[in-house]
Design a binder for these strands. Structure first.
Lengths: 257, 257
DNA sequence: TGGCCACTTTGATCCAGGTCAAAGGCATCA
DNA sequence: TGATGCCTTTGACCTGGATCAAAGTGGCCA
């Protein structure tokens, strides 16, 4: 539908029923909720799976649901009249999709991989927000993180060169991958790339050809090794970090929050 | 200090003492607060004035205060090692500056005009947030608005041409100006431009020369008339709107929230 | 009133990244 | 195992906006 999706993805085989078993329990919007509050959420939540390429919401939609990503990757993107498109958010498990308090979606949300969502009906969720300080507090925290990430991204879009953009992108993935495996970002780190070249281009505000050229550029300079085009091994993290010029000292979130 | 400020600005001559008299009372973070809650805020708030060019916070600062803009314009900006700079937020009266729950500032906040702030000590404010659902709710709402604005801005930075960027910028100012005066955006609207060419360039991810050329371009095409370089009269709103391609139908906020 | 200084405009040239075109790679399926 | 189709890479060329340089413009102060 949008061309940014991967061809195929393995089945998740994951169907939590109970919030306390949930893989994203400790990071999602519900992570501050007490057992009593969880019980209320549990009653109203429902699961839905989206195939790669499927729209989760479309720009202009009057959205009736919102919720958390349990598994998979979701891209938020905005489109100009003539088709130029820019990705404005890249969301991973535990991230929240939807805009409480305003039903009209200002962007498309598209499943990049197969995606499983934990959803709520908008009206019910808004009611819960109003009565549940822990839910609201966590949502505020997550929104502030996303705003910081968006601003980091704006610096990239406005001022970085193509090579710097790609290096920044790889560092973001690296930080994410190392966090998941609980290892530090070090030379030799193998980083899975969950996006096609087209999606990367839409992420970075470039064309697909430029992205491709920059990949080979980094490879020829010895900063990375490519394993197929769904993964990269980072062989010179120090150089990548300098290129990316992420003043990323760990004090704040990476661009994908 | 940063070169984006105006040379001089008139004195405000505005010093509210009591929250109920405050010019931003109905839109700021405190706008949902009850009289009893206001009384608590009133006790802890204090005012501070910043001169044009003065840093309100600097990237990396361990900020001890946060608060609302009562009067003036503030730019948030991020800087790369080699000095390239991108504006990532443009804030007006009633907007909130500061990141609750994380003291390290991820960007500079610079007074563009003379600015009057209503400030709180961070620790006190965070305590109030935790006990005051109305304060928290309004802050969440404002943060969601800013996030939407940031994403609109990302589309501009990533995909629009220089002419489109400037047209978008003018439409933003136009919407703001017309809202203030409570008139509709119509041909002939006189729009004050509170930023220097350099600040506009940092806003749009361009250079100052390109901004200047685009201004004369729009003028020669008859879309605007320039009155000095602190104001523009929009003579062909329809054309500007098409150029800007803001799918701005009033359903959601403009880029500066 | 004139000189200074900061901001802005304009001109000439350059180059990073876009565009257009063609040729790999690689998975799927008959 | 060969055909199909999608994704990716590479090449040749072009152009929008950056860069470098110089000439306006206007406010402020002596």
């Amino acid at each position: 539908m949008t061309g940014i999706v991967q061809k195929s993805t393995p089945d998740l085989g994951y169907k939590p029923n109970c919030c306390s078993d949930c893989a994203i329990r400790h990071r999602a919007v519900c992570s501050y909720s007490t057992p009593a509050e969880l019980a209320v959420l549990e009653e109203t939540k429902f699961y839905q799976t989206f195939e790669p390429g499927q729209d989760i919401v479309s720009e202009g939609d009057n959205t009736k649901t919102l919720g958390s990503i349990i598994d998979g990757v979701v891209a938020l993107q905005k489109t100009l009249e003539d088709g130029r498109r820019q990705m404005v958010g890249l969301l991973f498990p535990s991230d929240f999709i939807g805009r409480p308090l305003r039903p009209i979606a200002p962007y498309d949300a598209v499943a990049v991989t197969r995606v499983q969502m934990c959803l709520f009906h908008r009206t019910k969720f808004e009611k819960m927000l109003a009565h549940n300080g822990n839910l609201e507090r966590r949502l505020l925290e997550m929104t502030l993180d996303e705003l910081d990430a968006a601003r980091e991204w704006m610096l990239l879009l406005g001022r970085k060169t193509a090579a710097e953009k790609l290096a920044s992108f790889l560092m973001i993935l690296a930080r994410r991958a190392s966090a998941l495996e609980n290892v530090s970002v070090a030379n030799g780190l193998e980083v899975p790339i969950p996006l096609t070249r087209e999606a990367i281009a839409e992420f970075l505000g470039l064309t697909i050809e430029t992205v491709s050229r920059q990949f080979t550029g980094l490879r020829k300079k010895g900063l990375i090794e490519l394993s197929g085009n769904r993964a990269a091994k980072l062989t010179d993290i120090a150089a990548l970090r300098i290129l990316a010029d992420t003043d990323q000292d760990g004090t704040y979130q990476d661009m994908t929050a």
